[in-house]
């Protein structure tokens, strides 16, 4: 517990610690790094335009902290792609790249392909549905890595109606985090319970780490990523930053049930991999939820099978584009 508290004190930041843009820029240039921003999208026409315009004008033109902004789309049927192009982002349709790796769909797929499509040494992932977008979402994530060479992966957390303690929120995940993830972490990976919002969609990491991770393509991508980084490199390479508030649409409980179903698969998979619990075998990939139709209950079942991508570093096309560097 003491170690966890030490980690919390040492590795929990606030975005305001990194609001000196010139300082960040100097630091980035001094380290000779390229930084890429990936916005994974699926029908985000309502918010994508202003996310791009704001982050591009503030973090590429005013302070060239970002070297590229790319939208990786899962096949939006609204105007997401057109708006993103109009406002000057690079736009990639996930299904059109690395076809030889087979077809998979999901947010994790976009994040995985970002490693191949983007150039940065650091990749920043930001969800495309943030209504109150601000440069802090990027600066707060890259700041800890630019100022501390030991930190390789930074996770964001946000305002939730929870008590504050000395400027740092003492808890504050969403419903799935508090009811599912944190209890599971407590039982099997207690060191990770200090991550305030393990499911947040805003994080950044060094390519050198991300390329060595398996990527669940669905709901489990954030959980899998955290466990894998912790298992391979330890807790000390992970940090988290308070990004204050993040305004986005709330999910229905029913949707959260499906999300939990996917995350659990990733979790059992990690237990098998790291805790030698080979006896766990999922018997059913259909999420059963009871609904009502004309006052009659019925069971709705949805197939949710979490697939995973192998580490990008094992993909030949990737190795050709990014030849392995000596350690």
């Amino acid at each position: 517990m003491n170690n966890l508290n030490k980690w919390l004190n040492k590795r929990t930041f606030h975005h305001a610690q990194f609001n000196d843009m010139n300082g960040l820029l100097v630091q980035k240039q001094g380290l000779g790094l390229k930084i890429s921003l990936c916005l994974p999208t699926l029908n985000e026409a309502g918010t994508i335009g202003k996310e791009i315009i704001l982050l591009k004008s503030e973090l590429m033109e005013r302070y060239p902290i970002l070297d590229e902004i790319a939208v990786i789309d899962s096949g939006s049927t609204d105007n997401t792609v057109e708006i993103a192009k109009k406002f000057g982002a690079k736009v990639f349709l996930a299904s059109e790249h690395l076809k030889e790796e087979g077809e998979k769909r999901g947010k994790g797929e976009n994040l995985w392909k970002a490693l191949y499509l983007l150039e940065g040494d650091i990749i920043v992932y930001i969800d495309a549905d943030i209504a109150n977008i601000h440069p802090k979402f990027v600066c707060g994530l890259i700041g800890p890595m630019l100022y501390n060479p030991h930190i390789k992966f930074v996770k964001g957390f946000y305002d939730r109606p929870l008590t504050l303690s000395q400027g740092v929120r003492t808890s504050g995940g969403g419903r799935v985090t508090e009811i599912l993830i944190r209890p599971l972490f407590s039982q099997f990976f207690p060191e990770l319970t200090g991550i305030i919002q393990p499911l947040s969609g805003e994080y950044a990491g060094y390519r050198s780490i991300l390329e060595k991770l398996h990527f669940p393509v669905g709901y489990g991508v954030e959980t899998g990523m955290l466990i894998d980084i912790f298992q391979k490199w330890g807790l000390d390479v992970i940090a988290q930053t308070d990004l204050d508030s993040r305004v986005h649409s709330n999910k229905q409980t029913r949707e959260l049930g499906k999300m939990s179903f996917g995350i659990l698969q990733t979790f059992w998979n990690r237990l098998a991999r790291y805790k030698n619990l080979d006896s766990i075998e999922i018997e059913n990939y259909r999420m059963m939820q009871v609904g009502m139709k004309n006052d009659t209950p019925f069971v709705e079942d949805t197939e949710i099978k979490e697939k995973e991508r192998r580490p990008m570093i094992e993909v030949p096309a990737y190795l050709e584009k990014f030849p392995p560097q000596p350690e």
């Binding site: 704001l54 591009k56 004008s57 033109e61 005013r62």
Partner: peptide
């Protein structure tokens, strides 16, 4: 123009 639009988002919020 995008610089003005970036400022517009920042100010408006």
């Amino acid at each position: 123009r995008d610089m003005v639009l970036g400022n517009l988002v920042m100010v408006s919020q």
